[in-house]
Simulated scan of single mutants.
Amino acid sequence: MRFMVMVKATADSEAGVMPSEEMLASMGRFNEELVKAGVMVAGEGLHPSAKGARVRFSGSERTVIDGPFAETKELVAGFWIWQCKSMQEAIDWVKRCPNPMPGPSEIEIRPIFEAEDFGEAFTPELREQDERLREELARKGQPS
């Protein structure tokens, strides 16, 4: 099973406060453990929402909203994609993670949909397209 593991933003991360050398080293050691265990597929930190944008959809209309965004606790400051046997394994890994922020913080874990989760709506033609795109991404060296 694949999981998206999201580090929730804090007032510090939204203010652009960069992690200390100690935090970077600690997180680097944790990431190394994840890679050696075959768990980590990808992982990145994100710039504050002030550097981002949202696109709101309403029928055929598109509205662009520039950051920063309110409700810091609802924002994501970074993420991993992990391959784990179960939600419990992902939880166990998160419990080993260094605190990603200087103060209180939160990490959210969400399963990623797999092809079989879509049932009959994911027709053989759509499965073929999905496989073709994943193969193309792999050839280009991009995670799928």
Rank of each mutant, 00 (worst) to 15 (best):
A90F: 09
P19E: 07
W93L: 01
V55W: 15
M1S: 04
G16S: 10
G119T: 10
E74D: 15
Q129R: 15
A115Q: 10
F113D: 02
A25W: 14
D92T: 02
R127G: 01
I91C: 03
I65H: 15
S20I: 07
Q129A: 13
P143T: 05
I81V: 06
Q88V: 10
P100T: 14
F30C: 00
K140V: 00
L34Y: 04
A138W: 12
Q83F: 12
D92S: 05
Q142R: 15
R96F: 13
E21C: 07
F113Y: 07
D12V: 04
K95M: 12
A50Q: 10
E128D: 04
K36P: 00
P143C: 05
P100E: 10
G141D: 08
G67P: 03
A115I: 05
W93E: 01
V64H: 04
I81W: 07
R54G: 05
S105H: 12
C97W: 07
V17S: 10
V7S: 06
A9R: 03
S49N: 07
E22H: 14
D92A: 05
S86Q: 01
L137P: 02
G43A: 06
V41L: 01
M27K: 13
M27W: 15
M101Y: 15
T72Q: 00
K8N: 02
S60Y: 12
V5E: 04
V17Q: 13
P98G: 14
Q83D: 14
V94P: 04
I65S: 12
I107W: 12
D12P: 00
P100D: 13
